[in-house]
Design a protein around this nucleic acid. Structure first.
Lengths: 219, 219, 219, 219
DNA sequence: GATGAATGAGATTTCATTCAT
DNA sequence: GATGAATGAAATCTCATTCAT
C-alpha cells in the first residue's frame, strides 16, 4: 500500500474510533427510548452501532454508565442561547410564544434527543440522580424561559394571567404530550395521534392565547 | 385451638385466599409503575403482597400475564357511566368541563390506577397489544367524551373552537402532565411539581377557557 | 403419600438444605486448593457439590464471598483447646513436641482443612485481609503455642536454645513443607515426596532435637 | 536529528528490541508471583514491560507459553557449577552447609528468581508438566547436592544421621518457608516475618547442626 | 516490528419458573 | 393450595487474542 493510502486508511480508522462513542450513544438512545433501560440488551445496542459487545464496554464501563452518558449527551444546555434570543426579540408576545415553541420543535422536539424526555419519564425512579440532573438542566431553565416570555406579555399589557406558574404548565404540558405520543403510544397505534406536529403546536398556542369561551369583543 | 376459632381462621383464610389475586395486582401495579416491568422482580411483587414467589405463579402463569392482568384490571370501562352523567348534566359547559376533570381526578387521577398511564407510556413499545387495548378502552372513549362536552358548548353558543380535535388535546395534555409529575419526575425531585392537584386542574381549565390574551370585553 | 412418609421426606429436604452450604464449602476448598481461586469456575464448584450454578449463588452472594467463607470455615480456633492440653501435659518436653505435631497432623494436616494453608499461600496477595485474618487466627497462636513448649523445655533444663524465635520456625517450616508437598508438587510428581507423613514428622522432630553433629556424650 | 544521533538512537532501539522478551519475562515473573497466573492480565504484563499488548503476543504465542517461558527462564541449571564447587571445597562439612545455603540465598533466594518457587507451588496442579520440569531440573539435583554434602559429613565422621533423606528435607524446608514468607504471607502482614534472611539461614543451619537438646559434652 | 481497536468465547451473576414437599 | 429450594436460560462484563494500520 502506498504511503498516501496508508495515511488515508489511518485517518479513516481514527475517525471511526472517535465516532464510536457517538454512534453507540445514538444507538443506545434509540433503543432505551423504545424498550426502556432494563429491557434493552447491551449487545443489541452494540449491534445497532455496528460493533460487537466487547467494543461497547471498551467505551463505557457499564450499561448503567452508558445510560448516564446517553442522558448527559442529549441534555444540551442550549438555554443560554435561547435567553439571548429572548433579549433581542422585538415582536409581540403571542408571536414570541409561537417562535419559542417552533424553535423548540426544530431544535429538540423533532430530533432524536426528544426521546430523552420519554426516557427520563420512564426511568426517573430508577435513576433519581439523573432525574435531578434533568430537572436542573432542563426543567428549571426551560420553565424560567417560558415564564419570562409570559411576564413580558403581562408587562406589555398583552396578556392577563392570574397565575403565571400554572400558565407555564399550560404551555409545557402540550409539548410533553406531543413527545409522549411520538415516542410511546403514537408509535404503536398510529391512529392514536395522527396530527402534524407543527400544526399541533400552532393550534395549542392559539387555543391557549384565545381561550375557548366566546368573546363578545370578537363580535 | 377451639372449633370456633378454627372456623374463624378458616374463614379469614378463605377471604384472604380469594383476595390474593387482587393483592398481587395491587402490589404489581405499584412496583411496575415505580420501577418498570423489566426492572421489577416477580419475587418482590409476591413479597409486597405478602405471599411467596410460588403463589404468584399459581395465580398468573407468567410475569407477562401478570402485567397484562394489571393493565386490564386498572383500565375500567367507566365511560358508560360517565356518558350517562353527560346526558343528565344541566349546567353550562364551562362548569361541565370542570365537573368532568374533577370527577376524573376523584375516580382515576388520585387513585393508584393513575399509575397505569405512566406504565403504559413506559411500556407501550414492549407491549403493543396492551397499547392498542388502552387506546381502544381509554383513549378513544375518553377523547369522545371530552369532544361531546366541547361540542355541547359550541352548540349552546358558549364556546368558539376552531378545531375541536386540538381542543381535546389541550384538555388531556395537562392531565397527562399531572400524572407524569405524580409518578415520575415529581416523585424524585419534589420541588419539580409542588402544586395542589385540584387547584392545578381548576387553573388549567380556567386558563383554557379564558385564554391568555387580554379581552376588551372584560372591561 | 402417607403423612409419616411426608414428614420423613420433608426432613430429608430440610437436612439437604442445611447441608448445602457445607457441601459447597467442601467442594470449593478442594477446587480452590487444586486450581487456585481465579482458575476455579463457580459452576465447577456447584457441580462438585452436586447442585447447579444457581444454587451456589443462593447460598453465597458471590464467588469472592464463597472464598472468604471457605477460609473462615477452615480456620478453626482450636488453640484454646490445645493450650489447655499444654497445661496438663506431664511428660518431658521432647515427648511434648512429638505430641503437639502428631496432634496437629491428626486434626489439621491430614484433613482437607490443611489445604487452606496452600490456598492462603497462593492467594494472600490477592486477598490481603484474609492473609491478616489467617495471621491473627492461626500463625500468631500457633507460634505462641510452640514457643511455650520450647520455653518449658528450656525452663526444665531439657533444651538449650540460643534464639527461640528461630527454633519456632525450625519446627513450623517442615510442617509447611509437608503441606506444600501434599497439596502441590507432591500431588503432581508422586516421586517428589513419597514419604509417610507420620514418619516424616517424627524424623523431623528427632533431627531437630538431636542435631546432625556427632556428640561426644553419645560415645 | 544528526546522523550520529540517529545511529545512537537506532542502536538503543535495537538493544531495547532485543531486550524486549527479557523485560516481558521479568514483568511476567513479578506479576505471576504476586497475583497468580489466572489473575494476571496479559495487558498488565505488557504495561509493566513498557510495551503494548500486541507486542507481548509478538514474542510469545499465548499467555500460557509466556508462563512456561517464565518458569524455564528462571530455573537455571546452575547445579553443574555448584557440583564443581562441591568437589573443591576443603573446609569441614558444617561450614560447607553454611556455604551452600548462603550461596543459594545470594544466587537464588534473594533474587526475583526466588519467586518461581512460590509460583510453582501455586500453579503446579494447573501445569503438571511444569511441575515435573521443576522437579527434574531443581528438586532432584538440589536434593542430590545437599545429600552429597551430608554424606560427606557422615563419611568424614562429622555428622551422625539416622536417615539422610529426612535430613535433606530438614534443610530444604526452612528455605522454602523463607521464600513463602518473602513472597506471600510476609508480603501482606509484615509482622508475620520480620527476620533478616541471612541471620535466619545461619540460625536454621546452626540449630539443625547442634540440636535443641542439652549436650553433656558441651560442659 | 509495534500498536491498540476490535472481537467473541467464556466467566459471573440474576431471576423467571418449576416442582417436591 | 402454598411454599421456597432448585434450576438454567439469559444477561452483563472480562480479557486473551487478532489484525489492520
Amino acid at each position: 500500500m502506498c504511503p498516501i493510502a496508508k495515511l488515508v486508511e489511518a485517518h479513516k480508522r481514527e475517525r471511526r474510533k472517535e465516532a464510536r462513542p457517538g454512534e453507540l450513544l445514538d444507538a443506545a438512545l434509540e433503543l432505551f427510548v423504545e424498550k426502556g433501560f432494563a429491557a434493552t440488551r447491551a449487545e443489541e445496542v452494540a449491534a445497532h452501532a455496528g460493533v460487537s459487545k466487547g467494543t461497547l464496554f471498551l467505551y463505557f464501563p457499564s450499561k448503567e454508565e452508558l445510560f448516564k452518558a446517553v442522558v448527559r449527551e442529549n441534555i444540551s444546555g442550549r438555554f443560554r442561547e435561547w435567553n439571548e434570543a429572548f433579549e433581542t426579540f422585538t415582536g409581540d408576545s403571542a408571536a414570541m410564544l409561537h417562535y419559542c415553541l417552533d424553535t423548540w420543535w426544530a431544535r429538540v422536539g423533532s430530533t432524536p434527543a426528544s426521546g430523552i424526555i420519554k426516557l427520563i419519564i420512564s426511568e426517573a425512579r430508577n435513576f433519581p440522580d439523573l432525574a435531578r440532573f434533568y430537572h436542573e438542566e432542563v426543567e428549571v431553565p426551560g420553565r424560567q424561559l417560558i415564564r419570562r416570555v409570559l411576564q413580558r406579555g403581562v408587562d406589555r399589557g398583552e396578556f392577563r394571567i392570574p397565575d403565571i406558574d400554572h400558565a407555564v404548565f399550560a404551555l409545557i404540558a402540550p409539548m410533553m404530550f406531543l413527545i409522549m405520543m411520538k415516542h410511546s403510544l403514537g408509535a404503536c397505534s398510529p391512529d392514536s395521534f395522527s396530527v402534524d406536529p407543527q400544526s399541533y403546536i400552532r393550534a395549542q398556542v392559539d387555543l391557549l392565547l384565545s381561550g375557548l369561551c366566546v368573546r363578545k369583543d370578537a363580535a
